[in-house]
């Protein structure tokens, strides 16, 4: 038995939110025109679009920088988080010794560590500092989710593996990691968004002249009171966040749809 949305239902799921968005933009455009709101307070969508087209080159360069930092930080967070969680699962002492520090890393606001990291890495290498900061933010959800997931393997299945004389490696690869997959994917969905936030926040902290990412475009546009450009950069950031979220959701669906409850679509 497989459950699929029918085509019209799927189309509606895309068309309805898109329609709401268009309606919202139309109302916005109308409001700005009717009340003659100045550009530096609230630019109309058409003005934002104009600015987007004008500054397309520099915006795309910045988007690429932010994207690069976000994706690298995210991938390193996945490798580091899953890797450390595996280490924890193999040795309770290592977990006991290190987990509190992972928590410290998580609860310390990234904004407060940013200046330190920037000094250590050097202002001539800001992108690397951004990468470290984004990684710190993105790392913990994957670590904690994977740790939980590796522990959640069915106890009877564990006994069965033991009965058949499975090695530690076999228990890890054949039982623990597959059991943990839904947890890891849930952690990745959180981390993907956090990596973007980390990259942007870190760039704000890095301050003037040092960054090239979208955050810096926003700061720069703000300083010049070029609000349409600010909005253009802001929309790009939102778009990027949405893209990351949907990309990871799609991956989750693909990987889990045949077997995990969370990914089963039900006809209602």
């Amino acid at each position: 038995m497989r459950h699929h949305d029918t085509m019209p239902a799927r189309l509606a799921r895309f068309l309805v939110p898109a329609g709401v968005g268009l309606l919202f933009l139309g109302a916005w455009e109308l409001l700005v025109a009717t009340y003659d709101i100045p550009r530096f307070v609230l630019p109309a969508p058409s003005a934002i679009w104009e600015s987007f087209v004008q500054n397309f080159g520099s915006l795309m360069t910045s988007l690429w920088v932010t994207l690069r930092v976000t994706i690298s930080a995210f991938l390193l967070a996945v490798v580091g988080g899953v890797g450390l969680a595996i280490l924890f699962s193999q040795n309770r002492h290592v977990e006991m010794a290190l987990f509190p520090y992972a928590v410290v890393l998580q609860v310390t606001p990234v904004v407060s560590i940013a200046p330190l990291i920037l000094i250590w890495v050097g202002y001539d290498n800001v992108e690397f500092a951004l990468l470290i900061l984004a990684w710190i933010v993105a790392f913990f959800p994957i670590l904690s989710n994977t740790t939980l997931g590796l522990r959640s393997a069915d106890h009877n299945l564990r006994d069965l593996f033991r009965l058949y004389g499975a090695s530690r490696w076999q228990v890890l690869t054949e039982l623990q990691l597959p059991s943990a997959l839904p947890y890891i994917l849930a952690g990745m969905k959180i981390s993907g968004g956090l990596a973007l936030i980390g990259a942007v926040v870190a760039e704000f902290v890095a301050g003037s002249g040092s960054g090239n990412g979208l955050a810096w475009r926003i700061v720069e546009a703000g300083n010049r009171l070029d609000i349409p450009r600010m909005f253009a950069a802001l929309f790009l950031l939102s778009g990027l966040g949405i893209l990351i979220f949907f990309g990871l959701t799609l991956m989750e669906q693909r990987l889990l749809r045949r077997w995990h409850e969370s990914a089963i679509l039900r006809e209602s």
């Binding site: 069915d154 009877n156 299945l157 006994d159 069965l160 593996f161 009965l163 058949y164 004389g165 499975a166 076999q170 054949e174 039982l175 597959p178 997959l181 045949r258 077997w259 995990h260």
Partner: peptide
């Protein structure tokens, strides 16, 4: 070789029926 059957089927949900049956041999 000892076969063990639990109260619940205790299958690996991510594996097809054939892969579940293959498990004891795979572990060997």
């Amino acid at each position: 070789d000892i076969g063990f059957v639990f109260q619940d089927a205790t299958l690996m949900p991510w594996a097809r029926a054939s892969d579940n049956v293959y498990l004891p041999l795979k572990l060997k």
